[in-house]
């Protein structure tokens, strides 16, 4: 079968010790037997390693951070689209998703397809709403509260036992053993990610994750569970293994069916020694470890692109258990002229 030629823009090329999902997404697309992609990298910073990695990105454009304003952001996307005739954009970073979801119709008018959750789905699963989300859809979620002031923190002692998890709006989480530590982490997280900061009941157990893809009509197109084997000091998986856990798959399918989830998601779940499953977070996007799912037999980036183009897909019905990934760091050699080109012209 002849592969379909598509121009696909991908963000999240920051393949550092806090890796973005861009590079694993691109690897999945490059290995597709249905798509022949021309990959347009969209980078926020000049030194995102994905820009310089050979054989992955065909052309890179610098884009402004969405916080600068959606008009400026979209102007840049239009400029890139005029040059590259984009078929699909895959945004991979939490902080940019809101802008892309809001701009879905405008992008569609330009002929650019996305496959993202609806704004309602995006907001109801946010960290600050997750507890209510769990109650609505019948999933156990640790008790949590949004904190926006010091007064809120003082009241926590009546509602929580220590330790508690203190989480940033988009990223980062710390375990706090007393009120003073909560205040310290509150200051750190609110200055970095803004408000609210989320305080969550700490559940002891093993963290397991699922990468999944919903078709927007309640069907789970893909789902692969993984356990982290090696975790960095930032809590990121540096090694992991696919596992066979029917309960995790059932939780995932139920959730996608009930929410009619559209797009990719990562479920972060704590499995207790008593066999209980607590949902601690939903990331409404592809996670950085997605290439493990590709290797295990479910090419989620490829499926997401096809769904974005309106194709009907049959769900993947299996994956290989015991597939492992191990990350490594690698020194690439670049040249100042590459850096100069990107810095001065905004493209490489």
């Amino acid at each position: 079968m002849e592969k379909e030629q598509l121009n696909i823009a991908v963000t999240g090329l920051n393949n550092t010790d806090n890796p973005g999902p861009g590079i694993p997404v691109i690897r999945g697309l490059r290995e597709s037997d249905k798509i022949d992609p021309r990959i347009i990298g969209l980078a926020y910073e000049n030194l995102e390693p994905g820009i310089y990695m050979k054989g992955l990105v065909d052309k890179t454009y610098q884009i402004p951070y969405p916080k600068i304003g959606s008009d400026i952001f979209l102007e840049r996307i239009k400029y890139i689209n005029d040059k590259e005739k984009l078929d699909v954009i895959i945004p991979n970073l939490d902080a940019e998703l809101y802008t892309f979801i809001k701009a879905e119709k405008e992008l569609s008018g330009l002929g650019i397809h996305t496959f993202l959750p609806t704004l309602e789905q995006f907001e109801e699963r946010s960290k600050s709403n997750l507890y209510e989300f769990g109650q609505k859809y019948g999933i156990k979620v640790p008790f949590s509260k949004s904190v926006t002031s010091f007064l809120d923190i003082k009241n926590l002692v009546h509602e929580f036992d220590f330790p508690v998890l203190v989480k940033g709006k988009f990223y980062d989480a710390y375990l706090a053993y007393n009120l003073e530590q909560v205040i310290g982490y509150y200051n750190k997280l609110s200055s970095k990610w803004g408000l609210p900061v989320i305080v969550q009941e700490f559940i002891r157990g093993t963290e397991v994750n699922v990468v999944a893809l919903g078709d927007g009509e309640g069907e789970t197109i893909a789902a692969v569970p993984m356990r982290k084997q090696y975790i960095t000091d930032k809590g990121k998986a540096w090694g992991g293994i696919t596992i066979q856990d029917e309960n995790l798959l059932k939780i995932t399918r139920d959730l996608i069916r009930k929410t009619k989830w559209r797009g990719a998601m990562e479920l972060e779940i704590i499995k207790t020694s008593g066999g209980q499953y607590y949902l601690i977070e939903i990331n409404p996007r592809i996670p950085a470890w997605v290439y493990l799912a590709v290797a295990a037999g479910q090419n989620i980036p490829e499926a997401l692109v096809l769904l974005a183009l309106g194709r009907k897909l049959k769900p993947f019905n299996s994956y290989e258990v015991g597939k492992m990934f191990i990350r490594y760091s690698y020194d690439m050699i670049g040249d100042i002229s590459q850096f100069e080109q990107l810095s001065m012209n905004g493209e490489l």
């Binding site: 093993t206 992991g240 696919t242 596992i243 066979q244 258990v321 015991g322």
Partner: peptide
């Protein structure tokens, strides 16, 4: 799963 050399793998937990 267990192999002849004594390596045992639990697919439920990894």
């Amino acid at each position: 799963a267990i192999s002849e050399n004594g390596f045992m793998f639990d697919p439920y937990t990894g």
